[in-house]
Design a protein around this nucleic acid. Structure first.
Lengths: 130, 130
DNA sequence: GGTGAAAATTTCAACAA
DNA sequence: TTGTTGAAATTTTCACC
């Protein structure tokens, strides 16, 4: 949306509207801007969440696992969570075959991993983040 | 990023670059554009994932639960997943107190809900979606 | 895919409430 | 402090090569 349209929607002049947006950028409320991509069109239609448990809870175990996730392009999100397991991943693959490959090649060889629980996404009735 | 900078980065003329971007928009690969906001600055620093199990698996049970999630502003994502539970939510609250309120007032009163498992996000070492 | 010019937008300084 | 005006700088957009 152009600043002109935004200004019109919120009922401000373009310059006043721009000043507010710039203030949000400067103060860190707006971190940046992104294009929203269609997963299916990109060939990443197979989405799953994966709970991962680590055998050790040392700093080294965490860092080496996180580095492995950083390298894997299929891993779109990696959250360090409380509870019975340590990590929750969001993984986007082309299909079940490429997911299986990720499962064995990446998760199977990642350091300290002791448990893997997959939840395949069948649909997302609400998704405000994309 | 302006089209001028993007064109410079990919090594194309601005017009050729714009033509490619417009084709991505037209063909549906690029669905839209979003500002990336800082959760903490917005007062939504308390992020958690919640696994939800439903007692019934009827169409009615699913639809009424999904409608309840649609109404709750704290629910940022609602995924219908395979596995032992039916839904995985991403919930963003101000703090633990407002999370507790969401837990009892929204999830506690949502229809057909039989199990709730919370995973509080301590950190997100990788997060390509925002 | 590139060039160049017209149209539109962003940006900001000066001013007003 | 917040909003408006107006003009310059920049960018987007597109016809043509």
């Amino acid at each position: 949306m152009s600043n002109l349209e935004l200004a019109d929607r919120v009922g401000l002049s373009p310059s006043a509207c721009l000043r507010r947006v710039q203030e949000l950028e400067r103060s860190g409320v707006i971190t940046g801007y992104r294009a929203v991509l269609d997963r299916g069109a990109l060939g990443h239609g197979f989405v799953s969440y994966i709970g991962v448990g680590l055998g050790e809870h040392t700093k080294d175990a965490q860092e080496s696992f996180e580095r492995a996730m950083e390298r894997a392009p299929e891993v779109v999100e990696c959250h360090n969570i409380t509870g019975t397991i340590e990590y929750l991943l969001r993984v986007e693959c082309a299909d079940l075959a490429s997911y299986k490959q990720f499962h064995t090649d990446v998760l199977g060889t990642a350091p300290y991993v002791t448990s893997i629980t997959s939840y395949v996404v069948m649909g997302s009735p609400k998704n405000l983040r994309c």
